[in-house]
Write a protein that binds this DNA or RNA. Structure first.
Length: 727
DNA sequence: AGCACGCCGACT
DNA sequence: GTCGGCGTGCTC
């Protein structure tokens, strides 16, 4: 008798175990496919983890196990969805991130192949013509010419205008029309081939260092515009020549077109793209092209790390420090961890580059876990932009309440008058933010722990997301008594209006989420900006990375403070990275770039250091802060988010759980903080609280699994994050 | 998670 | 009497 061990599509940890189903002898089934199954009183999609051959009867098995077996209703796939490497990767993901196995399979697969009941995508077919008899006897001149033109190849019916003659040929049995599968083509642009530029001395040194080393992970630290991409391209070229494949990760969907262009201009190998901006159909097709071995290079955002590419010879991770490499939903994986796992399987190198490496990665490089590489200078001896800092408090003092300082306004106008282009960064934090006194720049800090407090409009309070302290929002600034308290983070539409009104000849391109989410519009917008259809690009963080326009000579940062005061221990790091990146967007052509940073904290060290692009000072300063506060990378964190519709009950349970952890921890170095309210404290009709575990080098997984088992079945929503980016 | 079952209050 | 609120328990 055959038994299928099936995981249901339900991602809850409570159901994170296989259920046995009876498999009829006549059913063709292999492990690793999706099936339709009856479950409890309803019907679900399941994933067949294993098929077992058992030599007792169904009745005996049922008696022994104490439950009735149900039968698989339908087998959905013929072939396994994933190969052995990716199956074991799913198990690793589940274990490492304390997530259900099925949720791991679901993030790894494109939605059309996910084991869930939601939408299905089908292959796309075009009608295609094939000649079966090329004898032209008795045909008119026109029709025989057509038949000749169709010979020895397959022609899409839609490419033939003369449908009448085609029908004639078909009637006479000269041709047949069949359905041919076509891929939905997502990156069909063709670029002119470019020759490789000469390498700088630094670049040569880096290339040699990689080629002569057997280390696995390389951290390529290079200032903006230092030619990191050239290193990726050269390394990729060598690997592709050897016959091995290359996986390239970029932080945002918006950077894929540019990366693909760079690769296509230089390397003549087939490329696939994978990111969430593709339609389900496109993703399905790209996925299968990769799986069938039809592509050599895959470019994509975070989830592309699960591309079914085999024989990987190199993984490139651009802008290594990027937050977007962290998945915030279960399984809350860190892409870099997955990359390292896959690289060890294929025994290949990972090259990750950044101008501002994350503290974790830099620390690993210093310890020698990663191999440090440096590109300290911009190529062509280009100078870094000239950066000035504008104190917005002074502007207010002199009666300018606008979002634009006089100096920035003047520079924008100059730039436009000289036919050059401007990038303006407007930082905005969506749901909750801090508030700041417009007059003295005071921001509210928690009196318990010194963290920045968040404003919550629902009950007009300020809350500390670290220790949980909550106060009512004061009406006046406690420092200077001013009653104008401004929310950090103003809208991009407002700024667009101001610019249109105050700057002559401005042609503004607004790049916010709406502009990017619409399919194809991003590429078009970037292209239009490159072709100077616009002279000002205004946007949020998406414009800070990777963009490379020769004609941009001015970068303006509207409000450098908004990230700084978002109440997270990584806020300094994020601010430094963002400012350094965005300043690096200008002065990449022949003109020396200029950057203007507007801030209400003009003496803030982080802002001053990013203006100087001084990564090493920043690293020193921030590390000593992290050390004194016992924060990563000196400590590891685990964030447990719990949810329930009854807020009081949830709060009480959080305290119970905190106690539970205290009792079960086997090491004094393990500390539990909270419960605290997350910035999104009410989701899907559920309240949320979080507990934060801090630990040093202990093996925490035994404890985490105990916690998991304690929570399971109590009716609470739970999410584990073993490498949280925030607190 | 999602569904059935069951126990209680307030309606025609 | 019976409709529907949600707490509880189970899923091969």
């Amino acid at each position: 008798m055959k038994i299928a061990k099936v995981y249901t599509e339900q991602t809850t940890l409570q159901l994170d175990k296989p259920f046995s189903y009876f498999v009829d002898e006549n059913i063709n089934i292999v492990k690793g496919v999706r099936v339709s199954i009856p479950f409890n009183s309803y019907s679900l999609i399941g994933y067949v983890e294993d098929i077992e051959e058992i030599n007792i009867s169904r009745e005996e098995y049922e008696k022994k196990m104490g439950y009735k077996l149900k039968e698989i209703k339908e087998v959905i796939d013929e072939q396994p969805l994933l190969n052995d490497e990716l199956i074991s990767l799913a198990h690793y993901l589940a274990e490492y991130n304390i997530a259900s196995l099925i949720s791991c399979y679901q993030v790894m697969l494109p939605s059309s192949l996910k084991p869930t009941s939601s939408n299905k995508v089908e292959e796309k077919y075009f009608k295609c013509i094939r000649v079966i008899d090329n004898n032209t006897d008795g045909l008119s001149e026109k029709i025989s010419a057509l038949l000749k033109s169709l010979e020895n190849k397959e022609t899409y019916l839609r490419d033939i205008d003369d449908k009448y003659s085609i029908n004639k040929l078909k009637e006479k049995g000269k041709i047949e029309i069949f359905e041919k599968e076509v891929y939905r083509d997502v990156n069909n642009a063709i670029y002119n081939h470019l020759h490789a530029p000469d390498l700088t001395i630094d670049q040569k040194k880096v290339m040699n260092e990689i080629n002569n080393s057997n280390d696995q992970v390389y951290l390529l630290e290079g200032v903006t515009g230092s030619g990191k991409t050239e290193i990726y391209l050269r390394q990729a070229e060598d690997i592709l020549k050897e016959g091995r494949n290359v996986l390239v990760l970029v932080p945002e969907i918006s950077l894929t077109p540019l990366m693909i262009q760079r690769i296509k201009e230089r390397l003549d190998y087939s490329i696939a793209v994978l990111h969430s901006g593709l339609s389900d159909g496109e993703k399905y097709d790209e996925y299968r092209r990769i799986k069938r071995g039809e592509v050599r290079v895959v470019v994509g955002a975070r989830s592309a790390i699960f591309a079914p590419l085999s024989n990987i010879g190199l993984i490139v991770i651009d802008e290594e420090h990027s937050e977007s490499y962290k998945e915030e939903n279960a399984p809350c994986y860190k892409m870099i961890d997955v990359a390292i796992k896959r690289a060890s399987y294929y025994n290949c190198k990972i090259i990750m580059g950044s101008a501002t490496p994350s503290l974790e990665s830099k620390t690993r490089a210093i310890k020698g876990i990663y191999h440090q590489l440096n590109l300290p200078k911009r190529i062509n001896e280009l100078e870094l932009p000239d950066v000035s800092i504008i104190n917005m408090l002074d502007e207010v003092k002199y009666g300018n309440y606008s979002l634009l300082s006089k100096s920035l306004k003047k520079s924008i106008q100059e730039c436009i008058d000289n036919n050059q282009q401007v990038i303006l960064l407007l930082n905005r934090r969506g749901y909750s933010s801090s508030i700041q006194c417009i007059s003295c720049g005071y921001t509210f800090k928690c009196s318990n722990c010194g963290s920045i407090m968040h404003y919550h409009s629902s009950d007009n309070t300020l809350k500390c997301h670290y220790c949980g302290k909550k106060i009512n929002k004061p009406d006046y600034c406690p420092k200077c008594g001013n009653k104008y308290l401004r929310h950090l983070g103003a809208g991009s539409q407002k700024l667009e209006e101001i610019i249109k009104k105050e700057i002559n000849n401005s042609k503004v391109l607004r790049m916010d989420l709406d502009a990017v989410s619409k399919k194809g519009s991003l590429e078009k917008n970037l292209e239009d900006f490159k072709n100077k259809k616009y002279n000002i690009m205004l946007g949020t963080q998406i414009i800070s990375k990777g963009l490379d326009f020769d004609n941009v000579s001015l970068v303006g940062v509207i409000n450098a403070d908004s990230l700084l005061y978002n109440g997270d221990f990584r806020s300094s790091e994020k601010t430094f990275q963002l400012l350094t990146q965005v300043v690096g967007r200008c002065g990449r052509g022949n003109i020396r770039g200029k950057a203007i940073i507007q801030t209400s904290s003009s003496s803030n060290q982080v802002i001053l250091m990013s203006a100087k692009q001084d990564y090493s000072s920043f690293y020193q300063t921030e590390m000593s802060y992290r050390k004194s506060m016992l924060l990563p990378p000196y400590r590891n964190l685990v964030l447990i988010t719990l949810g329930h519709k009854d807020k009081d009950k949830l709060y009480e349970y959080c305290y119970y759980l905190k106690e539970f952890i205290e009792l079960n921890k086997n090491d004094e170095d393990i500390e539990v903080l909270g419960p605290t309210e997350p910035s999104l404290s009410f989701v899907n009709n559920q309240h949320r609280y979080r507990l934060l575990i801090k630990y040093k080098d202990n093996n925490i997984y035994e404890l985490l699994n105990k916690i998991k088992n304690e929570i399971i079945g109590k009716g609470y929503f739970v999410k584990f994050d073993t490498s949280p980016m925030e607190n």
